[in-house]
Computed example of a mutant assay.
Amino acid sequence: MALLTPIRTRPRMDRRSTVWHVDWILVFGVVALSFIGALLIWSATHNRTSLTEGKPDAFLLRHALNFAIGLVLAVGAAITDHRRVRILAPLLYAASIVGLILVLVPGVGSTINGSRSWIQLPFMSIQPSEFAKLAVIVGMALLIAEKSETDRHEDARTIDVAQAVGVAAIPVILVMLQPDLGTVMVLGSIVFGIIAVSGVPKRWMLGLLTAGVLVAAIAIKLQVLKEYQIARFTAFMHPSSDPQGIGYNVNQARIAIGNGGVFGQGLFHGGQTQNAFVPEQHTDFVFTVAGEELGLIGAGAIIVLFAIILFRGLRIAVNARDAFGRLVATGIVCWFAFQAFENIGMTLGIMPVTGLPLPFVSYGGSSMFACLLAIGLLQNIHLRSHRH
């Protein structure tokens, strides 16, 4: 009789854990953000023939296609057995390192907006640094979790965390060489968040902050950063110093958001947006479209949706059944939180311009694929926490 019980109950439990236990609130937040992003991208690009080549719906359709492909990747990540996720983690890390190296090879990598971050393929372009964010998360989480579980330590030891930081240092250095300061800042927030919940002494936090300041100072001293990147920080500190030059983007972005008022000027009716006063409005500055055309209500809705996603991510981290799941979920939350804050903040003038996209909202295949893969991993951790 004992042999009959698993045969009868196991299929039912598998179906319930896969369907009923999905975090549908998290799914709603992601789908809603992507839908809003599609509308904003459509509005920002439909009348710009230099971008669309006479096809007003071109970027809308591409954004929808990117979301569809990313959704397939998310489902795959969600239903993959957690043991296979651990096995695939080193492969993801190695692949991201190879990609980051390839973009630095002359003739392979392409420079866009001053950063050599892209690999051009016949049918699309890939930005390996977007996937490096996820690779750093799973790489650090795997190393810390494996060490703590093998040695039966509830908290990570100093040597374990030092090795994990070394794992993160390789992609950080490669991204700095592009140079892509925005992604380096995101990677820094990921490292800080994972270390914070790993259980090491608090002096590690102070050490990481000090190291970050030193690295920034050395990068400036050795002229690793380009002149335009340093100028962006100068414009952030002194917004009125060059309003028609390096400060143009931010000034136009603030004008666009200010024009929106409470209810906005209406989709496809924003003066700054429809007259193309704000550069890169379908990618880095997509939030300005929401501010101008959807107003405080629409822009606020985007922030609320991000808050929902972050809250569900933190909830998944707290309820994770193992250290690996807890660390991965924490890293993803830190990634989304910092990147959303930086992107929205730079349009408001409270953060420097770094060229980071707004997750799920900005146009871009690499960003969408990486972000939805991260959501799939969150669902994977969530589903496992409900299995008995």
Results as ranks from 00 to 15, higher is better:
Pro6Cys: 04
Thr9Cys: 10
Arg10Cys: 11
Asp14Lys: 13
Arg15His: 14
Ser17Ile: 13
Val19Leu: 12
His21Leu: 14
Leu26Tyr: 11
Leu26Ala: 12
Gly29Trp: 03
Ala32Trp: 11
Ala32Val: 10
Leu33Tyr: 08
Leu39Phe: 12
Leu39Asn: 07
Leu39Gly: 08
Leu40Pro: 00
Ser43Cys: 07
Ala44Ser: 03
Thr45Ser: 08
Asn47Lys: 13
Phe59Glu: 02
Leu61Tyr: 11
Leu61Ser: 10
Arg62Thr: 08
Leu65Ala: 14
Ala68Leu: 10
Ile69Asn: 04
Ala74Trp: 01
Thr80Ala: 03
Asp81Arg: 05
Arg83Gln: 12
Val85Ala: 15
Val85Arg: 10
Ile87Val: 13
Ile87Thr: 12
Leu91Met: 11
Ala94Val: 13
Ala94Phe: 15
Ile97Glu: 06
Gly99Trp: 09
Gly99Cys: 07
Ile101Tyr: 09
Leu102Ala: 08
Val105Pro: 02
Gly109Arg: 00
Ser117Arg: 06
Trp118Gly: 00
Trp118Ala: 01
Gln127Thr: 04
Glu130Gly: 05
Phe131Ala: 07
Leu142Thr: 07
Glu146Gly: 11
Glu146Phe: 15
Thr150Trp: 13
Asp151Trp: 10
Arg152Lys: 14
Glu154Thr: 12
Arg157Leu: 06
Thr158Cys: 15
Ile159Asp: 11
Val161Tyr: 02
Gln163Ala: 14
Ala169Pro: 07
Pro171Arg: 05
Ile173Glu: 06
Val175Ala: 00
Pro179Ile: 13
Pro179Ala: 13
Met185Ile: 10
Gly188Asn: 04
Ile195His: 00
Ala196Tyr: 08
Val197Glu: 08
Val200Trp: 00
Lys202Ile: 11
Lys202Glu: 15
Met205Ile: 13
Leu206Cys: 08
Thr210Leu: 15
Leu214Cys: 12
Ile218Gly: 14
Arg232Val: 09
Met237Gln: 15
His238Met: 14
His238Trp: 12
Asp242Gly: 13
Pro243His: 10
Ile246Asn: 03
Asn249Arg: 03
Gln252Asn: 11
Gln252Ile: 07
Arg254Leu: 10
Ile255Leu: 04
Ala256Gln: 02
Ile257Asn: 03
Gly264Ile: 05
Gly264Cys: 13
Gly270Tyr: 00
Asn275Gln: 13
Ala276Asn: 15
Pro279Gly: 09
Pro279Trp: 05
Phe285Ala: 02
Phe287Cys: 06
Phe287Trp: 05
Glu293Trp: 02
Leu294Tyr: 06
Gly295Lys: 03
Ala299Cys: 01
Ala299His: 00
Ala299Tyr: 01
Val304Tyr: 07
Phe306Arg: 02
Phe306Tyr: 08
Ile308Phe: 10
Ile309Pro: 03
Phe311Tyr: 12
Gly313Thr: 06
Leu314Arg: 06
Ile316Ser: 07
Ala317Glu: 02
Arg321Glu: 14
Asp322Arg: 05
Phe324Cys: 02
Phe324Tyr: 08
Leu327Met: 07
Val328Asp: 00
Gly331Ala: 05
Ile332Gly: 02
Val333Tyr: 00
Phe338Thr: 00
Ala340Asp: 03
Glu342Ser: 11
Thr347Leu: 01
Pro352His: 04
Val353Ile: 07
Thr354Ser: 00
Gly355Gln: 00
Pro357Met: 06
Pro359Val: 10
Ser362Arg: 03
Ser362Val: 08
Ser366Ala: 09
Met368Asp: 10
Phe369Ile: 11
Cys371Pro: 05
Leu372Trp: 02
Leu372Lys: 04
Leu373Arg: 01
Leu373Cys: 09
Ile375Lys: 11
Asn380Trp: 04
Ile381Gly: 01
Leu383Gly: 15
Arg384Ser: 15
Arg387Ala: 14
